[in-house]
Amino acid sequence: MQLDIFNDSRDVMLRNDVLSALQQYDAAGARRALQALENEYPDDVAQVYFGSIVNALEGRSTVPFDRHEAALQARQALSHEVQPAVARAFPGQSGATWLASLWAELAGRASALPFRADHADAHAAPLFLLAARWAEASDAVSRIASWRRIPAPLCWMTEARYRLDGLDAAWRLLVELAWLSPSRFDQLLSRLGDACVNTLRRNFDTSFDGAGDIDDLAWFPAWVLTEKAGLAPLLKQAEPSRRNAPERAAKVMLELLSLERQGRHHELLETRRELQALNAALYAAYMKTR
Rank of each mutant, 00 (worst) to 15 (best):
R191F: 03
L130P: 00
L268K: 11
W98C: 01
Y25C: 07
R88G: 00
E58F: 01
A284G: 02
R172S: 13
Q262K: 12
L106E: 15
A281I: 07
G29F: 11
L154V: 05
F50S: 05
A36V: 04
G51P: 09
L14Q: 10
A137Q: 05
P42M: 11
H123G: 02
D194C: 07
L256T: 00
F115M: 04
M13R: 15
R109W: 02
Q237F: 06
A70T: 05
L282Q: 09
A110G: 07
H68L: 06
A135Q: 15
S52M: 09
F50L: 05
S258K: 14
A245K: 14
R15K: 15
P64Q: 03
D11R: 10
T289R: 15
P126H: 04
Q237C: 04
D66R: 15
Q276W: 10
T289K: 15
W179D: 03
P153K: 04
I5N: 02
R264H: 09
A28W: 04
P233Y: 07
L192N: 08
Y283I: 02
R243A: 13
E239K: 15
L106G: 11
E274L: 10
I5R: 01
M13T: 13
P240N: 12
D4E: 08
V45N: 13
T206S: 13
L78Q: 12
A96T: 12
S190E: 09
R133C: 11
P64I: 12
Y162W: 11
C155V: 01
A249V: 06
Q93L: 09
E40R: 13
F220G: 09
L106C: 09
A100K: 08
A145D: 15
G51W: 01
Q35E: 14
L173N: 01
D11Y: 00
V86M: 04
H123E: 05
A222M: 05
G95F: 02
N16K: 14
F220C: 10
L173C: 02
T271I: 03
L259H: 07
D17T: 06
P42I: 07
A28H: 12
G92P: 00
A170Q: 05
L102H: 14
A169D: 14
S146D: 15
N16S: 11
A152T: 01
L130T: 00
D118W: 02
A169I: 04
R148A: 11
